[in-house]
């Protein structure tokens, strides 16, 4: 059952839409705030709030990837393994995390610290490979750094700042946002980070290797005799 406070929020959400049923996805996010997944009680409550049958609500709840059938841990760690991330090592990141944590896709660690999942394209391919914690992005990661990240979560520490977003405070807080309710605890939001523009004070690009700017146009497209490799950084 939703708490009295969340129930009040639920009515507030329903009031925003010309048709009450439009509130169903937000309400299912709200159920995840309370239960960490879409529980049977949550389904019944949404049905009751919107005048739908439980089957109708369950049909919707089972359609969407972000609505979970099993309780999530305190944090949700998603690793993009779609191809633009995969060619940058996204699959290795997921495999390492899975091995390190001893859980597979959609698995939750024994103490309920976190749930691991591999995700489809998260729309952040310029920062491949991408890991998100509670849907805030950590870009340009690698297996070692990802392990460091989850080790911190396993110890119950607050994660370091993401490259895009606020410091994640738990999947339930994220679900509160996703229900359309804004920050659950405005005091605890931390500093917003969005990287990767000169104006954001990002560090200058390295002089060579990946990420280095090219002084001239280097046609590295297919000509065997075109400049490649070592000249890339000049």
């Amino acid at each position: 059952m939703l708490s009295a406070e969340l129930r009040e929020r639920a009515h507030e959400i329903i009031g925003r839409y010309p048709g009450a049923r439009s509130a169903l996805l937000p309400l299912l996010h709200l159920v995840q705030v309370q239960d960490g997944h879409v529980s049977d009680e949550g389904i019944a409550e949404c049905a009751q709030l919107l005048g739908l049958s439980k089957a109708e609500v369950a049909g919707v709840a089972t359609f969407y990837t972000m609505l979970k059938r099993e309780p999530m841990g305190r944090h949700l760690v998603s690793v993009c393994t779609n191809f633009s991330c995969k060619v940058r090592g996204g699959q290795e990141v997921f495999d390492r995390l899975s091995e390190h944590l001893g859980v597979g896709h959609d698995g939750t660690t024994g103490g309920g610290e976190l749930t691991l999942e591999h995700a489809e394209c998260l729309g952040n391919c310029e920062g491949a490979p991408v890991v998100t914690i509670d849907y805030y992005n950590y870009e340009c990661t690698d297996p070692d750094r990802a392990v460091e990240l989850v080790d911190g979560l396993m110890r119950g520490e607050a994660p370091p700042p993401p490259t895009r977003g606020y410091v994640p405070t738990g999947i339930r807080d994220a679900e509160y946002r996703l229900a359309g309710l804004g920050p659950r605890d405005p005091e605890a939001m931390g500093v917003a980070i969005t990287h990767a523009r000169a104006s954001d004070g990002a560090v200058p690009p390295p002089a060579s290797g990946p990420g280095a700017p090219r002084a001239t146009l280097v046609p590295s497209l297919g000509d065997e005799d075109g400049p490649t490799g070592d000249e890339g950084g000049s």
Partner: peptide, 15 residues
């Protein structure tokens, strides 16, 4: 196989 991560965020400064 794969090329490894982009590097660091600075790799994406706009020209």
């Amino acid at each position: 196989g794969h090329a490894g991560p982009v590097g660091d965020n600075s790799g994406r400064l706009r020209p």
